[in-house]
Design a protein around this nucleic acid. Structure first.
Lengths: 339, 339
DNA sequence: CTGAAAGCGCTTACAG
DNA sequence: CTGAAAGCGCTTACAG
């Protein structure tokens, strides 16, 4: 429906070659006469010419688009990641195709296929579940991708994560030093390695203080049924350990739900707190909560950097089949102690 | 790098025509022999064939991709919209290219151009600013698009919005009936028509009760400098009208910032409240806040529905130049009175 | 039952 | 200084 190079060429009795050269700014280089150049530019403007990037991508074999898959775009953390990744990718001329797997493995697999079929040059993803055949298949195909926030220690992929264990360790240690000694830990999605690391930090902080974590203070929330599950878990903890004095939340969502629970039950919020990541109003509801701030901007920047490196590397040595070296980046959280 | 139709055709000594037909499930229809069909399928599997959707799009003249532009992907409301729009679009086989204009008009213009150049079949957008040349240009080109959340009353475009004035009117009227009579109104981005409507509702609720809103209770926050601006505005209101007894927030962000302000200043949260949209922890911080719940899922669904209608219509009658009729949909908020 | 050919809109090596 | 031609990977009308 729109004007194409050919339309301009026809209108001006030129070849598409010439038109293409002018319009992609190669007039000088290709020695196009200024007269021709101006006629082409003028005509393009008149016909309201817009290049068809699909055609260009098909020719070039690269789309200047990268795919981004998050587990849940509704989650504040991931939507912020999207934001920073978009801003960073843009700097290098890349657009994004963003998809939310909604924590559904089937969806995630599908999305990977669709994005690859749509010829994204690479993929950034925070994977949903346990080791995923699509990830293995991308590795086999030497397709550029970077995992972020979550990764699989047994797979040699690029990844960018936070220092899960260290951040957790330091938060919990801080609580212990503040003389809280019945610290409950709330966790979820425990199939994720990063979650195991967070719980690991909780445990090792105790061990280093010569303590053994009380099993009754461990609460695992079912991600499929947050609302009910956290109720059950907290009911149990408050029943079994009525003098619980602090909470370590392995994610901001758990903390948020906790506040809801306490309000419903009329429980005073007067505990010690520590949390990985925080949401907007936490500082008002629980001003003394200790928080590990996730370096969202850096996570995004690093993920994009590594991905683009991989893409470029692939372009250069298409022939070579040796897989490019993988990069694993671990960024540290900044801890805010507020109590 | 990947196997193409031609590779399969060569390997099997067939034409790409045949291969294409088999692989797009037209074996029956085109009367391909089962033997050939199976050989093709087998070979495709072996070569790990994946169709190149760019090539198909180029041929078909449609990409099955729609562009989505929001003012700020970091905002909870917009990220939820993205989520619902993605889920809805997916039902019809459309993928999304999501971009955040970050409230920057230049960026927005750019994004529109890029998305169109990338041949999205249509565009969904919550526009940033005052009437935008790109929108006019899309209208001229008969390019399918739908505005949501915000729109321009002077332009005949498709749009999906909420009943801004009615919702505001009812919220404020409710407060007045509860005998609050010094209701401050906080607003921002007042160049947006929808914002004017919200303020309009505040005013007409007063008028209907035979009251005239007190100018000193009006606060306009500069979107470029929220933090400082809201401080200035609230300082003034509390100084000029120390007995202010309620607040009407025209957006959830204003309410959120208000809570921050009060906490910093040590001001008790004991006011009457009404707000358009709410954030997660509002129900804990201000359980009596009256809220207009935005019908996010329906907004998304309607926007997609209208856009796909327009896309289809365009496909059918390419020749006809009469612009398709535009649809304006206004969805009502559900009001929750909690005090 | 299957194939040769043209076309979608670009880019670029090659030729003159 | 400019053009003819091939190719990216698909689809489809036409022919046999």
């Amino acid at each position: 429906m729109h004007a194409s190079l050919k339309d301009i060429a026809n209108a001006l009795n030129l070849s598409t070659t010439t038109v293409s050269w002018v319009l992609s700014g190669k007039s000088e280089e290709k020695g196009i006469s200024p007269a021709t150049r101006d006629r082409v530019k003028e005509c393009a403007r008149e016909l309201n010419y817009r290049p068809n990037l699909l055609a260009r991508s098909l020719h070039d074999g690269c789309s200047n688009t990268i795919g981004l898959i998050v587990p849940s775009i509704g989650d504040q953390f991931y939507s912020s990641m999207v934001r920073f990744i978009e801003l960073e990718a843009e700097k290098f001329g890349y657009a994004l195709m963003v998809c939310s797997s909604e924590n559904d493995r089937e969806r995630e697999n599908n999305i990977v296929d669709i994005l690859r079929a749509k010829q994204v040059d690479g993929l950034l993803m925070a994977p949903t579940k346990y080791s995923n055949e699509k990830i293995v298949s991308m590795m086999e195909d030497n397709f550029p991708f970077v995992l972020f926030d979550r990764y699989f220690p047994e797979l040699a992929t690029n990844y960018v994560i936070i220092d899960n264990e260290i951040a957790s360790y330091n938060l919990v240690k801080h609580l212990l030093e503040k003389c809280y000694n019945k610290i409950a830990v709330l966790t979820t999605n425990t199939h994720l390695y990063t979650m195991q690391l967070r719980y690991g930090g909780y445990c090792s902080a105790h061990e280093d203080m010569g303590l053994k974590p009380d099993e009754r203070l461990y609460g695992e929330v079912d991600p499929k049924d947050y609302e009910n599950s956290i109720e059950t878990v907290l009911d149990r903890i408050f029943r079994d350990v009525p003098d619980v004095d602090a909470f370590f939340f392995t994610t901001h969502v758990l903390a948020s739900r906790f506040f809801g629970y306490c309000t419903r039950k009329g429980i005073n919020l007067d505990f010690g707190y520590a949390c990985i990541h925080e949401e907007k109003l936490f500082n008002i509801l629980a001003p003394h909560m200790n928080v590990a701030q996730l370096p969202i901007a850096s996570l995004g920047r690093e993920a994009v950097r590594i991905l683009l490196q991989d893409i470029k590397r692939l372009k250069i040595k298409k022939k070579k089949t040796d897989p490019p070296p993988k990069q694993g980046v671990i960024l540290s959280c900044s801890l805010e102690f507020r109590d």
